[in-house]
Design a protein around this nucleic acid. Structure first.
Lengths: 105, 105
DNA sequence: AGTTTGTACAACCATTTGGTTGTACGTTAT
DNA sequence: ATAACGTACAACCAAATGGTTGTACAAACT
């Protein structure tokens, strides 16, 4: 999933389809590459769950999936939390080392 | 930067060094690959700003950078916000379509 | 002084990635 | 019915990626 977000074109497709739905060919029109290339990007994003496609006649409507974004966020939140835990441990160490008559900062 | 986070080993290095500092060889001991491979991963992470290195004698101490994590988070937050804006626009449309005597949900 | 340790980096290799063109096929328009 | 359109997918290609081994070098140990 981070792998899917690693490409600038794909991030832009996510942004665009999060803002408003678009067909694959509409998307393809926005980028300076072949239709097939864009279609592959969309496939990668769909694989990663960042985007979903639904058919309307011969076209496929692409829609960004906010749920997947939230999953990525929660992963980063975990990182944040791990780091905070380390800071807490350091604080505890410092506290244990602080004389009783020390002033609170 | 998402590219740097796209590899599982690298994500683990970030986690580990966010929790506590570690030398490159300590890290290398944790993974089933050559020292050089791990060293390259650390280099990629450093390039992306996700990790910083400082020398202590002949070793290099690696530390995860919470600031970079926050930058990634804020990027995902932007996605979230874009999506919310779309929902707001849809709501506005529905409101405009709602007869005056309709009940509030 | 000589050896070991920790790191960096080059050269190499297989696989993956991001792109291309061409083909096929169902859907819509004439 | 035929043509045009939107999409999917295969085959191909160059470049990037993730790994390897080997070499070099400074710092630390004996």
């Amino acid at each position: 999933m981070f792998r899917a977000l690693a490409d600038a074109t794909r991030r832009d497709i996510v942004r665009r389809t999060l803002r408003a739905e678009a067909t694959v060919s509409e998307l393809a029109g926005s980028y300076d590459m072949s239709f097939a290339a864009v279609q592959k990007h969309v496939a990668v994003l769909e694989e990663a769950g960042l985007v979903s496609k639904r058919p309307r006649g011969r076209e496929r409507i692409v829609r960004g999936n906010p749920e997947a974004i939230r999953r990525a966020q929660s992963l980063l939140d975990q990182f944040e939390e791990i780091w905070r835990a380390r800071i807490d441990r350091l604080d505890a160490l410092l506290d244990a080392d602080t004389p009783n008559n020390a002033k609170e900062r």
